[in-house]
Design a protein around this nucleic acid. Structure first.
Lengths: 342, 342
DNA sequence: CGGGGGCGTGAGAACGCTCTCACGGCCGTG
DNA sequence: CACGGCCGTGAGAGCGTTCTCACGCCCCCG
């Protein structure tokens, strides 16, 4: 049935022990840097390890230690387009860099639909990983509960819906969005539209809330016809902007809840013959690489990724060590980056 | 030392067996869908599994089966920018989709430098995965040898340098590039420049070779001042185009070895006051999403991703099953997509 | 009615590692 | 010189599975 004939038989701890003339226990101690080993024994073991090109079998080790020294970064997002979203890429890079200095491994998992979520849940529950960082949480996402219930240490990247007792790290989406819209109002704009993110994602909801908050603060009305929902993609942003222009040709500013969408918004504005920023001022969100290469360069809200990714891993590691309470969370401050579009 | 106090003790096969009133072996048979189980026993086991919320311990299973039912997709690329490259995203999506129908898990690993490559190598050799798909192979990449030597089934996404006996799947980069340049020559262009990919990556080398081949076929000279090396990024493409314009202001066409670079090329051309395609015709490579949203829409070479990703997984699975020889490879045909830029 | 051949089942040995425990040997102290 | 303590070591018991055997059972055939 199982065909393992093609795989060479790897040397075991036992083989090393025999070659080094010591017991398995001593070899194990050397492998795990235990101090209680004589220099001679250590030397003998190390040369035996080198000679046999021994590599410890992680499965066997995990079976007894109940640790895998692996953590998972789960991207939970049906729209695969989002996979190339620069924000996601930055998080991956940051977490990966933070972990590079440790002896922890990082694996990325994607879950696009219910079935894949179940698969990821199983993967985690079966003990493949010591903990999970979960990104892009939609409102009806079953994964947090699945993992929390299985006792798998978990940190969300992004505030969860409701008041779940779950650790998370998030940017101050609401505050950042409010700053963006306040900036537009400060420029004297009065008909400020918005392209929101998906409203089943908390980042979409919070940024929209911040926008409305700033409108109120500036004494401007909440006009539903100046709100269009996007999906964090270029195409979605373009579509949303076309809708807005059709509904209210006189709008003089737009707060766009992500930079890729803002790129689409700029395209739609150009196609409609509007000048940016003269006719319509635009502010984005994320400060992604695309913000610098679009035309005109995009004024946007920068997320403090440099703070967020280390926090993410730190909180998770503390949970894994059993040091932290389960619901320790952080919100990181954003800031406005002024370029030409507003 | 080891603090596992926070993790609840999970139910074992034994516990299920006791509750169901059968032996461990029978429970195991039910879990693994063995046909040799009576309906009553199966029923008893399944309800016990449900009651205890039993999940098999994958480590224990792997220890004996020597399989993990997990394959790794390794992105081996120092430039993390490339992580958001649409081509990479498409491969991930495709492989992930192909595997969704199986009970195999997919993990993504990134290796940015020598140290991380070693880490990935260790991860694979320690038995965490049954096989590896390796992307973005640079000329001096140690990972293929590391894995091959350890006997880990391996398929490269992209032809390897030299004549290594390693399985791979690749697009016909050379043929595609030749078609692109031939198309430009066919439009009557005579001073055809190129922005290449990194020349330590085989895709960069092959596309450049195809370009030169088509120049020869069209009776055009190989002029070194019409060649600039890019790095597959927007910024790199923009820089390269600026160099080309400085060296040869009269050029009338450019073959760009990737769409993101072509986006940068279009920016540089616009900044220099050149009209596309009237003054300078541009052809890209990849048919990424960006090709449709840039201005003007990009004529480009489409890679047959729909063919490549299933092949990639198929070849790997065959190796894992022990069916395939180690060096079974495929090259997939590309095709020209005509839009406005050429 | 007796013997052979499935079929469902259970006992028990792996798999490769860690970790507890007990045991000699050496030191320092009384 | 006798005794307690520490240090390096090894024997052996798990960790939670799978898998090989061997064993009854029932059915079918002669």
């Amino acid at each position: 049935m199982t065909d393992t004939s093609t795989r060479p038989l790897l040397p075991t701890l036992d083989a090393v022990a025999v070659l080094a003339g010591v017991s398995r226990a001593t070899v194990s101690r050397v492998i795990n840097d235990s101090p209680r080993v004589s220099p001679e024994a250590r030397e003998a073991v190390l040369s035996a390890v080198a000679e046999l090109r021994y590599v410890p079998n992680r499965m066997a080790r995990s079976l007894v230690t109940r640790r895998t020294d692996t953590i998972a970064l789960v991207l939970n997002e049906p729209n695969t387009q989002v996979f190339s979203d620069p924000f996601f890429a930055s998080i991956v890079r940051g977490v990966s860099a933070t972990l590079a200095d440790t002896d922890l491994n990082l694996v990325l998992l994607t879950a696009r639909d219910e079935r894949e979520q179940q698969k990821v849940g199983r993967y985690a529950r079966q003990g493949h990983v010591d903990g999970v960082i979960l990104m892009s949480v939609h409102s009806e996402d079953p994964l947090p509960d699945l993992l929390a219930e299985a006792g798998v240490p978990l940190v969300l990247c992004g505030r969860p819906f409701g008041d779940r007792p779950v650790a998370f790290v998030d940017a101050d989406n609401r505050g950042g969005a409010a700053e963006a819209t306040a900036h537009l109002a400060g420029l004297g704009r009065r008909r400020i539209a918005t392209v929101t993110g998906p409203l089943d994602m908390i980042a979409g909801v919070d940024r929209h809330a911040g926008h409305l908050e700033a409108l109120t603060a500036a004494g401007l009305p909440h006009r539903p016809e100046l709100v269009a929902e996007g999906d964090f993609t270029v195409a979605g942003g373009e579509r949303a902007m076309e809708q807005l222009l059709a509904r209210e040709p006189d709008l003089d500013a737009v707060f766009v809840a992500s930079d890729p969408m803002a790129f689409g918004v700029l395209r739609a504005l150009r196609a409609a013959g509007r000048r940016v920023p003269e006719d319509v001022a635009v502010v984005g969100f994320d400060d992604a690489a695309v913000a610098q290469v679009c035309d005109p360069p995009l004024t946007t809200i920068a997320q403090p990724l440099a703070d967020m990714t280390p926090l993410l891993t730190e909180l998770l590691l503390r949970q894994i060590e059993g040091v932290a309470g389960p619901a320790e969370s952080r919100v990181c401050r954003t800031h406005l980056v002024r370029r030409a579009s507003a």
